[in-house]
Design a protein around this nucleic acid. Structure first.
Lengths: 193, 193
DNA sequence: ACAGTATTGGAGACCGCTCTCCAATAAATT
DNA sequence: AATTTATTGGAGAGCGGTCTCCAATACTGT
């Protein structure tokens, strides 16, 4: 019924991921993506309404891919301490397997122009964040964290700390050391003890 | 001997800090800085050789201001455990007092165009990082960290973890909760126990 | 074979940013 | 008062990025 596409959406987003990992969100321009896959700029604008839409899609695809596996790990383990350790380890392992996409996540949605996103895109972002927040809150409750500081501590242990372990390596573009998974797991366990 | 300056270097750098805190490194353009202080673009180019030089100066001034106090705290306390706790607390307290400059430090030198810096600027950056690295290494030794994983754990406890505590609040532009200092201190202590 | 349609391919207007250049200006020195 | 010098003030060229627009294209269903 129509001419088959030579450049599909995922191919363009893959190029955008590579550009962002190498040069930050600012390097993700419509022309750079077009040039990276050898497409004319018209093809890029055919799939994305504009640069904000492209940035939103590349951010959301990446963060949703990560969250899917992360939530599966946290929900798949009934014991909260073991769930926390597995989650921490998962963050590092996922970053090792997907270094370019992990480098993206070290930035924030704001760096990807969240202020210019459409309502649908911001809603998708909020929805994903809400699911993670709910799961972490449930885990914090199971761990007996009642006051705000204790809940913040669980958040640090589950989310921020494993990201810290990988941050310096990803930013430098070097591979993660072999012991990174166990380091993150031990640190998380130490915070929850 | 000459006409007195209406716009001095620190004034321009202050404007650059505000712009970076609000919109990231990409928002720090020569014209934006000029417009922020009401100066013509010529005045900005009179003080900075170009955009890379401006970005280098704003990054280095900020990171050096932070490191000065941080190293003083770490070196001022002979007991390594107490030094670590004090350092962790200092990171949070400094961020509370200097939210815009702290928001800068959440980015990396690479985001401020380190690749385009002059030799002098990269040398300054390396020198500061080297001093911090030396101090943290000395502290790790005093804490009995022998293998690489143990030393990484000290680095996480001293540097990455307190930064994680403040990251989400700074990125969101909200004030740090009152218990942030003690949260960071307790987490650091837990990792070093 | 034919018509319909999504997609390509690229030209070009528009805009903001970088950087250069130079005359005008205002203090300090003699 | 004359001279010197750092700085201001702003105009404008050049460049790269965004976005629009439209003809050409290549495939699908009938």
């Amino acid at each position: 019924m129509a001419r088959p596409p030579r450049f599909d959406t995922d191919q363009l987003l893959d190029a955008a991921v590579a550009l962002a990992a190498a040069g930050g969100p600012a390097a993700v321009t419509m022309s750079a993506v077009a040039q990276a896959v050898g497409a004319p700029s018209g093809s890029v604008y055919h799939r994305f309404a504009g640069r904000p839409a492209l940035l939103a899609e590349v951010w959301l695809r990446t963060v949703e891919r990560f969250q899917r596996g992360y939530l599966a790990v946290l929900d798949g383990e009934p014991d909260p301490h073991r769930a926390a350790r597995a989650g921490s380890r998962y963050v590092v392992a996922w970053s090792r397997e997907n270094p370019r996409e992990a480098a993206l996540l070290l930035y924030g949605a704001a760096d990807f122009g969240r202020a210019d996103w459409s309502g649908e895109h911001t809603a998708r972002a909020d929805s994903g964040n809400g699911r993670v927040f709910a799961t972490v809150s449930g885990l914090a409750l199971a761990l007996g964290a009642t006051d705000e500081q204790a809940r913040d501590r669980v958040t640090v242990a589950l989310v921020d700390l494993p990201l810290s372990v990988v941050r310096r390596h990803l930013r430098a573009g070097t591979v993660l050391p072999p012991h990174a998974e166990s380091l993150a797991e031990e640190c998380t366990a130490a915070l929850l003890a």
